[in-house]
């Protein structure tokens, strides 16, 4: 019968010699390979003490940005939620009251803003849809957890801290065209 593939081997039934019968050379050979692997470069890292290098545009946990004066940029326009293919984003809008101008950039803001991280697929379409440069994905990774409800991230987790030292730099995520556009201070969008 013709062989079905070129790689088929004819199995021989030949008798093993004495050295083959005691198996010791084969065992020692295997242990030599194991020993050799002890001295090669490791494929794993000791996370969290050591972290791998992240891409500048890694898509991790979201951040709700504030502007330079610390006002929330999000106006709850809902474009991120409608762009989201996983329908992970929900929000409730509220109207800014007189005296809250230092908290919110525009007359409408998101009183609640929630992202279900179990649904999120980290595609980045929300940051692409955002007309206010309010939502960005960051290099921070979403931590594992034991309870499902801990994965619904609200504004308490997502909002950028007010502390100037803890602000999150997203300029690497913006295209050169956007950065060029932001220099034009005649645009209302760019006025701080």
């Amino acid at each position: 019968m013709a062989a079905l593939t070129k790689r088929s081997k004819v199995v021989s039934n030949k008798k093993m010699s004495f050295w083959e019968k005691i198996y010791l050379p084969a065992i020692l050979g295997g242990m030599w390979i194991t020993l050799g692997h002890l001295f090669t470069r490791k494929t794993t890292v000791r996370y969290p003490e050591v972290t791998r290098e992240f891409s500048e545009i890694y898509r991790g946990k979201h951040v709700l940005k504030r502007d330079d004066e610390g006002r929330e940029r999000c106006t709850a326009c809902g474009l991120c939620a409608v762009a989201c293919p996983a329908e992970a984003i929900t929000m409730i809008a509220a109207e800014r009251k007189p005296g809250e101008e230092n908290l919110y950039r525009e007359e409408k803001y998101a009183s609640t803003y929630e992202i279900n991280m179990l649904r999120c697929i980290f595609c980045g379409l929300c940051e692409e849809a955002c007309p206010k440069e309010a939502i960005f994905l960051t290099k921070e990774i979403v931590k594992a957890g034991y309870e499902r409800d801990t994965f619904v991230y609200g504004k308490d987790v997502l909002l950028e801290p007010l502390d100037p030292l803890k602000r999150i730099d997203v300029s690497k995520r913006q295209t050169p065209e956007v950065l060029e556009f932001k220099k034009d201070k005649n645009q209302r969008h760019n006025v701080q």
Binding site: C77, G78, A81, V82, A93, A94, E95, K108
Partner: peptide, 9 residues
């Protein structure tokens, strides 16, 4: 209806 929702929701 002011700021209650967006029409596409």
């Amino acid at each position: 209806f002011r700021f209650k929702s967006r029409v596409w929701f």
